[in-house]
Amino acid sequence: MSNRIIIFTAVLIFAGFSFASDANKPDVEQIVQKANLAAYYQADDGKAKVTMTITDKKGEIRNREFVILRKDIADGADQNYYVYFLRPADVYRMVFMVNKHTLPDTDDDRWLYMPALDLVRRIAAGDKRTSFVGSDFLYEDVSGRNLAEDVHELVDSNDSVFVVKNTPKKPDSVEFSYYTVRIDRRTSMPMRMEYFDKTGRLYRIIESLQVKDISGFPTVTKSKVSDLNSGSSTIMEFSDVQYNIGVGDIFTERYLRKPPADVRR
């Protein structure tokens, strides 16, 4: 009996220590989860007009413009994206639709609608670290990297930021050896991400250049990715951002073929 009391007391004491240490040094998993929610899951749904300006090392510029609609199935979990392209002219009215899945080893479902052919194509899921619409943003930057794919370490913190180092659990599946994220303590927004290659050299930076409060939700309205290897960079700007607009069940073949009125207004 007395043994049991001792063990019980010991458990309580250790538990108390661990609570105390949580108070001093916050749990890194909580930090990255909050950052993930801030960056990809604000409100229950949202809509924005997105412009991308891609500048290559020679200074030549290409533009992308699309309307994006998002609806979350659950915070931090699955969500749906609907992307309606406006520019460049050769992809005008094309639609890209994603059912994002966050369960481990579950690929996203992706569709592309090509209006000139009235063709609904299923896109074979693949490497998420390939360019999104030819920009320096990768598919994974836009849709969010699954938290479970990395080991997270809090490497630095001060009054305004946390710095988290993320090391992939499957190093062979990605081109980086690790990346660091500076997270704003107040908004939980990732403000700067630095990617290091297999030799430990910095080769890629994503910066949040402008964060605005929209309907009470901190929102990155301007961000930039710089590829130090290729000398190319892309600026992505969000305008007409709206939250909780009541995005309906538009993630279906019906709306792939004939977009909802929402995307055009």
Binding site: D107, R122, I123, A124, A125
Partner: peptide, 9 residues
């Protein structure tokens, strides 16, 4: 019928 099989469609 069309859908995911393994890594592909």
């Amino acid at each position: 019928v069309r859908g995911k099989i393994g890594k592909g469609i």
